[in-house]
Nucleic acid binder design. Structure first.
Lengths: 193, 193
DNA sequence: CGATTCTTTGAAAACAGTCAATCTGTGTGG
DNA sequence: CCACACAGATTGACTGTTTTCAAAGAATCG
């Protein structure tokens, strides 16, 4: 059950962790089961945990003054969730994180994560790789959000995350693309001829 | 002249570099003067240098199929520029980088940067801090691009980068916000009452 | 089932883009 | 030093895209 995490660390640190090291890592995490709709983080709270999704999915979103939700991030198996700003700055979060399906999630506190990073080079390496990839992915997401039309963004989503289209309701995908569910429905109809 | 870089490293690594270490760092960089409009990177090329702006400013932008430019990134003194995707993956870049004013820029190759990162812990620390901050800033930029109207994005720009408004032509700022120069002009007029 | 959430569709309105014309300031070459 | 070219800014009229509001149908879940 912690195996997914072990594989992830090996992959992103380009190393093979020893059993001893992994034992240490494993002990820093707590597995928690979440029911669909349950919150990992609520707006105004400081994000306490960095979370690794073993099974299920989650979203990070804000709610604007009109009550409309804006999804910043959709995460599935082997993805991390957590408000990076709140985690690092220890400031109250502007976001909510909740679970879209019944999920199994490994939680680690910021302090334990820091401790692991300081004692185990593999963890530092993993974090750096993750950040690197995150920077690159963000660059593309910013570019697409600012330069592409709603239809073009939908097509990019089909190309880059076809799994999302089957897994998440359109209302979530629309929010993730920054459009309304109605526009999403119309564009979908048009693009699928 | 390399002083800005030294201060930057001290700040972002939360350390004070020794003269010896800095000598090593300094030697890895080359100072180059760029005339307004000169390119650091052209679409299709692999980005060879990570660049620290000592004086002046630069933009990273793509050109779409209709020939319209989309500015992803505006950099001024004490900012780094370079296509992170191309730099790390060694793939041809989808972006151009050019200089908006006569500029003085310190260039370092990816290989030299890697070498410094491996030999000097301060550089590793600096890179990690930069990536961390980049991830947080990107999170906000993505959120704003997807959730805010053109007018709201303009107001955010006024709040967060008032210096940009004085320094860059509106045509650049419009592109940076993902709107046309005409819309920028109208919004500006409206917001400034 | 019955209730809720999600999806689709239509019509009108708001928003931003396009095209075109004019105006401004800047800088360069003659 | 002037004249002209050029890049940028503004404005108007129009077009097109996306949102909003409303209603109804489909799917899902307890």
């Amino acid at each position: 059950m912690h195996n997914a995490l072990r594989n992830y660390i090996n992959k992103y640190s380009s190393t093979t962790i020893s059993d001893d090291d992994f034992e240490q890592i494993k002990n820093a995490f707590v597995l928690k089961r979440f029911k669909k709709g349950q919150y990992l983080l609520q707006e105004g709270d400081v994000c306490k945990y960095f979370a690794f999704i073993v099974k299920g999915s989650a979203r990070q979103y804000s709610v604007d003054t009109k009550g409309v939700e804006h999804i910043l991030h959709l995460g599935i198996e082997n993805w991390w969730v957590g408000d990076r700003e709140s985690l690092n700055m220890l400031t109250p979060s502007k976001y909510n994180i909740d679970v879209l399906e019944d999920s199994e999630i490994l939680l680690i506190t910021v302090e334990d994560m820091q401790r692991l990073t300081d004692t185990l080079p593999v963890i530092g390496k993993m974090i750096n790789t993750m950040n690197q990839r995150n920077v690159i992915a963000s660059q593309k997401r910013i570019h697409d959000a600012l330069s592409l039309t709603a239809e073009e963004r939908f097509i990019e989503l089909m190309k880059n995350q076809p799994d999302f289209l089957e897994r998440f309701p359109q209302i979530m995908l629309a929010s993730y693309l920054g459009i309304t569910p109605e526009t999403f429905s119309r564009i979908r109809k048009k693009v699928l001829k």
